[in-house]
């Protein structure tokens, strides 16, 4: 389902000695996870810079990376606030963008099998990257390692990256002069591109963008994006009868990670 599992999956199945096999798998999984974490950390730099350029202060920016810790939602909240939207519209946008994490958790719960305090802590690590590096592994042991190594690695480097970007941007007198207000839509474009699989998604994206733009003069700032969310919800409610609809239902619900092009 995701291309990044192709290299690491087979090692422990083929080795004759299970411990040697596990060591090979572990090395591979850890290497993959660190690659993802480094790439995501680099992308955290752009989040830190864009958040500051959008008007948040350093503490607010760091609070998002530490406590929200799901990239697209963080960018979404910053975007709505930067445009002058009310904070609750920003929060609503962020929450809708984070809805997919619930479905990742649903898939991960049978692999991770955590309860109590461990579940409370583990939940924060349920993001695109940790899910993608976990599901599809050959064994639950490798899947758990992939999840935690990626989740913890991304958490640490994403927050370091955010701090670097935010501090760097706070030294700039006018972020607009450097074009940083155009960096956010470019970041969204890079997030959107891997999700545009198939004609239906392209069409839906164009409709959503059109609805949002047409609504800009008519409704308060921040609301156009929420209207686009409504478009998506309605489209999702329309039952599918085709074979591709069934395939989408049984597919693991778009575990498409935030892009990490450096590792590809």
């Amino acid at each position: 389902m995701t291309s990044r599992n192709t290299s690491g999956g087979t090692a422990d199945g083929e080795a004759s000695d299970p411990e040697t096999g596990w060591r090979l798998t572990r090395t591979q999984v850890l290497r993959d996870s660190m690659g993802v974490a480094v790439a995501t950390g680099a992308y955290g730099i752009s989040f830190g810079a864009i958040a500051l350029a959008g008007g948040l202060n350093l503490w607010q920016t760091m609070a998002l990376s530490l406590l929200m810790f799901t990239g697209a939602s963080q960018f979404g909240l910053v975007a709505v606030l930067a445009g002058g939207g009310v904070p609750l519209a920003g929060a609503a946008t962020a929450i809708m963008l984070g809805a997919r994490n619930a479905l990742y958790g649903l898939r991960l719960s049978e692999i991770l099998r955590v309860g109590g305090l461990r579940r409370v802590l583990t939940a924060q690590l349920v993001i695109d990257e940790s899910t993608a590096m976990s599901i599809g592994r050959d064994t639950d042991r490798a899947a758990r390692l992939g999840f935690y190594a990626t989740g913890v690695g991304v958490f640490v480097l994403w927050n370091i990256g955010t701090l670097i970007g935010a501090v760097g941007a706070s030294w700039l007198s006018d972020p607009r002069a450097l074009g940083l207000d155009a960096a956010a839509p470019a970041a969204f474009l890079a997030l959107l591109a891997p999700r545009l699989r198939g004609r239906e998604r392209w069409a839906l994206a164009l409709v959503a963008a059109s609805v949002a733009v047409l609504a800009v003069p008519l409704v308060p700032v921040g609301v156009p994006v929420l209207l686009a969310g409504l478009v998506g919800a309605i489209a999702g409610l329309i039952p599918r009868r085709t074979a591709s609809g069934r395939a989408e239902r049984t597919a693991p619900t778009d575990p498409e990670p935030d892009p990490r092009p450096e590792s590809r």
Binding site: L191, A228, G229, G232
Partner: peptide
């Protein structure tokens, strides 16, 4: 389906 489509429409918007 909604969870898969929400990021598409929100990011596009």
């Amino acid at each position: 389906r909604i969870a898969a489509l929400l990021p598409v429409v929100l990011l596009a918007a």
